[in-house]
Computed example of a mutant assay.
Amino acid sequence: MREPTVASLMTREVIAADVGSSFKDLVRLLEDNKISAVPVLDGGHPVGVVSEADLVPKEEFRGGTEDAPGVFAGRVTKHRWEQAGGVTARDVMTSPVKTITSDLAASAAARELAAAGVRRLFVVDSDGALVGVLSRRDLLKLFLREDDELRTTIRDEIFGRTLWVDPATVTVDVSAGVVTLDGRLERRSEVDIAEHLVRALPGVVDVHSQLRCGWNDTTHPRQTEIFG
């Protein structure tokens, strides 16, 4: 089964700013659209991002009129002071910006989000031009799949087409994304594979397995002689 990709989850209409956008226009862009950050584009290519945190230093340091941080101040504090004197997106943006491509698997995108510690990733094409944005909320939409849809996919795709198991021999119940499996398969390896595939299915919250097997093909015969 193919995993959903970024292309199927991302938001394609992206509100963005230009590197030359004024400070006031940036504030208005965030306020009017009720968003917390925008990508900054240069010729259609994302070169940075401006968030509310990048704009607040203007007030924190009173537009740069406060004394510059001392020599022992941290790098982050010095950067905020520099942002306070900025007048365009280029001056205040945080860069470089983290980007991904639309063919990336959803699970890989989730790992990228976690590793980067950001709320969103900007999606670019092969030329590096912005084509969308993927947020944490976009990924969470996977868990809104209907229980009946999950049940059908598990029964027909996993047991029927992937494992070649008669779906009638297995009971699949799904409630609020939690899957309960019951029934008897021929081999222990089939039980293990089935449980793994169901748990990895996008939209599944948890799996309770009561599957049984006719014989354990995962145990070496010699082990059975010694320990059996």
Rank of each mutant, 00 (worst) to 15 (best):
L181K: 00
V40F: 13
S95I: 00
K78T: 10
D166E: 12
T162W: 14
G44C: 13
R212N: 10
L113C: 12
S175Q: 03
L121F: 07
D182W: 03
A108D: 14
V170Q: 05
H220R: 14
E225A: 14
D138C: 14
A194N: 03
I154C: 13
L185I: 13
V97S: 06
W215S: 09
M10L: 02
V56S: 01
F122R: 07
E82I: 11
S21M: 04
A68Q: 14
D42Q: 14
R212L: 11
G214K: 04
A109N: 13
K98E: 08
P96N: 05
D173W: 04
L144R: 15
V92C: 05
V14R: 04
D147N: 08
T153H: 12
I15D: 01
A17I: 09
G86T: 08
C213V: 09
V92E: 03
A16R: 10
D192W: 09
V191Y: 03
G44Q: 11
T169Y: 05
R145E: 09
L142V: 06
G48T: 05
A114Q: 07
G85C: 02
S175G: 01
R111T: 07
L185S: 07
F61T: 04
R80I: 02
A115S: 09
T218E: 01
G20I: 08
Q223R: 15
S135V: 11
L130T: 07
R75V: 13
L113P: 01
G117A: 03
I226L: 13
G48D: 01
A37K: 10
D192K: 15
T171S: 15
S36I: 07
V207Y: 15
L121G: 03
F23T: 10
T152H: 14
E59W: 10
V50Y: 07
G160M: 11
S21C: 06
G86M: 10
A194E: 03
E66F: 13
T219R: 03
P221F: 00
V71K: 06
A16L: 01
I15R: 02
F122P: 06
G44D: 10
D206Q: 13
L130P: 03
A110F: 07
E82V: 11
V165E: 11
I15V: 15
Q223S: 15
T171I: 08
L130Y: 14
A89Y: 00
G85N: 01
V49M: 13
I158Q: 12
R75P: 02
A168F: 09
F23A: 02
R161W: 11
D25L: 06
V170E: 04
R212M: 06
S51N: 00
G214C: 15
W215G: 01
T94R: 00
A53Q: 04
